[in-house]
Structures are given as structure tokens and as C-alpha cells.
């Protein structure tokens, strides 16, 4: 009964975390390692997977322009989606934050709620709204006089970006919202008392302080958009492939698992590098704002 407190505090954390650690090593790290290995295996239409070590798949990805184009499309869509959510989501979070208590929580529920609603259902909604040339969106835009002739949304990058931005929007609003919560509520009054107008207050006082929130939201949106599957698959159909849908096809239609594994590995590595890199950059740049 006389185990010293120091000894207890050395052993206890490991006793408590070892089950979860074993779970993660056993069924996360090992499968991921197996996938990386798989990308070096050979595959043939009739022979199936051969456990050898070759660079065939990586060579194919590196040399066939089809893959370069597909990855470029994936990241282009992710970047544009990120921009769209930042440009619309940040002002919305700011407006939301200025509302009075009851409306604020109501609209927060309305805007953040979709985060938890099935992506399939949400994308289905866009498919219905786009729905060919006489889809609701086209009808509305034409009746408003925004444009003369219908533009195609289904099976296009435009449609994908709009639907993805809708799916990702809550992450951006949430991230900017969190940054706004750290703001001193009196700060705008302070700026006003010093003679700043509304535009100046937003530009000089609010923007610099919520920028870290926008950037961390952008990282989340970017990485989720670049690896999104459901929305590109439903809106893009079989014609417009992105990395995730291509890997899916390789695995479940073509059955070329090693090539699919290579695509997936490349996507994972690219995303981890981009996310870790930009996180480090932001934290260095905004260290004082974060803490």
C-alpha cells in the first residue's frame, strides 16, 4: 500500500493507454504498412497479385499523363473549394457571431447541423438541384437574369466544387467561429472609440485576428476535399475521376489492387506533407495569436 505517488504517476498513463495503443498498432499501423507494401507488388489480369517488389505501379503513375492530370484535377478542385468556403464562410461566421443569443444558436444549428447529416443525402440534394439543363439551379439563375442559357453542373468540376463547398462549409464556419470566440468582445468598441470606421475595424482589427482560424479551417477543408469520395463519385459520375474515385475503381472494378494502393499511398503522402507543412507554417507565422 506504500507505492510512491511518483511511481504511480510513471506507470499509470501506460497502463491506461496500452489497450488503445495496441489497437492502433494492430489495426491501423499494420494495415497502412501493408498498403504501402502492396503498392510495390505486381498484378496481372489473370495472375492476380504477385508479392514481389517492383516499381511498376509507381513508374506507371509517374509517366502516364493520365495520373498527373487526375491528381492535378483533384488538387484544383480542392483548392477552389477551399477558396469558396473561406470567402463565404468567414463573413458568415462573423455575421453569426454578431447576432443576439437565441438567433445565434438557432442559425449555428442550421449551418453546423449538416455536418452530421449523411454526405450521400446532401450530395443527392445537389444532384436533384442541378438535374440536367432544367434543374432548379439553372431555372432560378435564368429567371433572375444571371445568365441566358443553362450551364451544365452535373458531371462537371463546377458542380463538384459547389457541392463540395456545401459539404465542407461547416468546417470553415466552425473554425472561424472558434477564432471569433477568442476575440475580446470590447475590441470593436475600443477601435471605434479611437475613431475607426466599420470597414477599417474589419480590415485592421477583425481580419488579422481571425486569419489563423480561416487558415486552419482551410487546411481541414483542403485535405477533406482532396480525399473526398462520395460527392465526386455522385456529381462527377464515372467520367470525371479524382484520386479517391480512381482508387475505388482500381480496387472494386478493375481489381488492380497494387495500382490502387499506389494511388492511395501517393494521396496520403501528398496530403500529410501539405497539411503538416502548412500547419507548421501557420503556427510559426501566427504563434503569438495561437497562444
Amino acid at each position: 500500500m506504500s507505492m510512491a505517488a511518483e511511481e504511480r504517476s510513471l506507470r499509470a498513463p501506460w497502463v491506461l493507454t496500452v489497450p488503445a495503443l495496441m489497437l492502433f498498432v494492430g489495426v491501423l499501423l499494420i494495415p497502412l504498412a501493408m498498403t504501402v507494401m502492396l503498392s510495390f507488388h505486381d498484378w496481372g489480369q489473370y495472375k492476380g497479385i504477385e508479392p514481389v517488389f517492383i516499381l511498376k505501379n509507381w513508374h506507371e503513375i509517374a509517366t502516364d499523363p493520365y495520373y498527373a492530370e487526375m491528381f492535378w484535377r483533384t488538387f484544383r478542385i480542392a483548392i477552389l473549394t477551399t477558396l469558396l468556403t473561406a470567402v463565404l464562410g468567414a463573413p458568415e461566421a462573423y455575421i453569426l457571431n454578431r447576432m443576439s443569443g437565441r438567433w445565434k444558436s438557432f442559425f449555428l444549428l442550421v449551418i453546423l447541423g449538416p455536418l452530421l447529416i449523411s454526405v450521400v443525402a446532401r450530395t443527392l440534394g445537389w444532384a436533384l438541384l442541378f438535374g440536367g439543363n432544367n434543374g432548379l439551379v439553372n431555372k432560378l439563375l435564368m429567371s433572375l437574369g444571371v445568365m441566358r442559357s443553362p450551364i451544365p453542373f452535373m458531371f462537371t468540376e463546377t458542380g463538384m466544387i459547389i457541392a463540395l463547398a456545401h459539404v465542407m462549409m461547416p468546417f470553415m464556419v466552425l473554425s472561424v467561429w472558434a477564432a471569433l470566440q477568442r476575440l475580446d468582445p470590447q475590441i470593436e468598441n475600443a477601435a471605434m472609440s479611437l475613431g475607426a470606421g466599420p470597414a477599417t475595424i474589419i480590415r485592421r482589427i477583425i481580419m488579422p485576428q481571425i486569419l489563423p482560424g480561416v487558415l486552419s479551417g482551410a487546411i481541414i477543408v483542403f485535405s477533406l476535399s482532396a480525399s473526398a469520395f462520395a460527392t465526386p463519385a455522385i456529381i462527377g459520375g464515372r467520367r470525371l475521376k479524382v484520386a479517391a474515385t480512381l482508387a475505388y475503381d482500381e480496387f472494386l472494378n478493375t481489381l488492380n489492387w497494387p495500382l490502387g494502393a499506389a494511388v492511395a499511398t501517393l494521396l496520403l503522402v501528398a496530403l500529410v506533407l501539405i497539411v503538416v507543412g502548412s500547419n507548421a507554417l501557420i503556427e510559426r507565422r501566427y504563434a503569438e495569436v495561437f497562444r
Binding site: V27, L28, P31, M34, A244, A264, L267, L268
Partner: peptide
Amino acid sequence: RFRGRDALAALFLSPLMIPHVVLGIAFLRF
């Protein structure tokens, strides 16, 4: 506050960062 605490927390939160396509493929293979 123990050695490896941050690494452990990062590992436990990592499924948020790994694309689900990659997880799907890894689990399928496994």
C-alpha cells in the same frame, strides 16, 4: 505529463487526418 504523450495523442487522432479512401483500402487489404 509522460514521455511520448504528444505522440500518442497524435496517433489516436490520426484517423481524422488519414483520407478514408486510404483507410478503406488498408482495411480491405488487411
